[in-house]
Write a protein that binds this DNA or RNA. Structure first.
Lengths: 221, 221
DNA sequence: CGGCAACTGGCAGCTTGCTGCCACCCGCTC
DNA sequence: GAGCGGGTGGCAGCAAGCTGCCAGTTGCCG
């Protein structure tokens, strides 16, 4: 990796392991990544091969950002919790898909996973300070907006379907039940049944309390 | 801009204008940027020179993400509001510094502003799909976590005194007015007067809505 | 001290919210 | 087709919330 551009393209996970595997071992101060879930770019064997090398340096800070998709799978959830228990910091991002994995090592090297090309996923590896610092800034902004994994799990958001979301939005606009029901095309009785169900889901005894909780769970949008 | 890497480095703003100015004109569907403020990377003349070319295509979506720093300066604030009034979408990111400007045009071209080198700022321009899609995903996550400019400006938190805070806490616990009044040592009528005043401060027509807003303002704690 | 403004608290009348009840409808199963 | 479970919608009764009214209280000022 030399020359002015400091950017190389790698085809396939095997090549990634061969050419960039040492980068993971070399991580000294910080390893950060952002992805939808643990399966965003790698087969389990590749992931184990790469990730297993990361945990050897004292003082190494590991930060990983995933979306709630990672928690839908029990195996991934367990794995993430185990990672947390050995010191990794993991946050859940609710505001984006993070469909392209981004890894930054020691703020010196960055690996981006791209699309699959002819059956192999394409990776871009770069040491360009401009690229890395720009992406790192966005990573930081996203990280700060995200929720710690353990806090996220403690505040398991209730499952609210599309109609429930619509009801919450109407509630959030301050409409009377009658106006909201009319808008949503429901009878007043049915609307109120929906509201009662949401109150139960939000574990709330009053509408004010429900409003607070709905906001906390990010259910208003 | 050809070759495998699709990444070039540009030194200085004059060279940026000369070599990449046409990219701004070519923007057809979307122009997005993220930066601390309007002054993150360019002198006013360069900015005017570049930005002035962006607004000509019908259907072009312009999204800009800045930090609150951009609003501390009255001139910038006015400029941003004027941009909003002509259709640009602007959000304020409270969770990061965005110290390195990132621009993505039509999801085909990305420009990143780096450090100053020998008096000139270094820019990286790339058409690499992997790089762009990775950065775009992070941009999206940050954008979604950010607050709309007009909402941000409108959401000056209301001033709530100590008693108001106590009332909000009681409300947040789901108590009936009678129970809350008793706990706070107020008559029901006075308690309800307090609640009515809070509803006014929170600009809310229902208790649910007030709950949402109170949470948004961080008044429940 | 008297006057005034602001606030409190009880009461009443009204609206909104909550939920049970029941008839009816729909889809599914045997 | 009959039976059943789940859901809808109208209605009624009740609780909770909202606010005006008015008498009484408090604090401040001249």
């Amino acid at each position: 990796m030399s020359g002015n551009q400091q950017v190389i393209t790698i085809h396939g996970e095997q090549e990634l392991v061969a050419r960039a595997g040492h980068l993971f071992e070399g991580a000294r101060s910080e390893f950060v990544c952002a992805a939808t879930d643990l399966k965003t770019w790698s087969r389990p064997t590749t992931r184990a091969s790469m990730a297993g090398r990361v945990h050897r340096a004292d003082g190494l800070v590991i930060r990983k950002l995933y979306t709630p998709v990672a928690l839908a799978d029990e195996e991934q959830r367990s794995h993430l919790l185990e990672r947390v228990s050995v010191g990794a910091r993991i946050r859940i991002c609710r505001t984006g898909l993070l469909q392209h994995e981004t890894i930054i090592i020691d703020r010196r090297v960055m690996i981006l996973a791209g699309a699959e090309v002819a059956g192999d996923r394409e990776f871009t590896v770069t040491t360009s300070p401009t690229l890395i610092s720009g992406v790192y800034a966005l990573f930081e902004a996203t990280w700060e907006a995200a929720t710690d994994l353990t806090a996220y799990l403690r505040s398991d958001p209730p499952q609210v379907d599309a109609e429930g979301r619509r009801v919450l939005r109407a509630l959030g606009e301050g409409l009377t039940d009658e106006a909201a029901a009319r808008r949503l095309g429901l009878s007043l009785r049915t609307y109120r049944r929906r509201v009662a169900e949401l109150m139960r889901l939000l574990d709330s005894d009053s509408r004010f309390q429900a409003g607070v909780h709905a906001g906390e769970f990010g259910l208003i949008s």
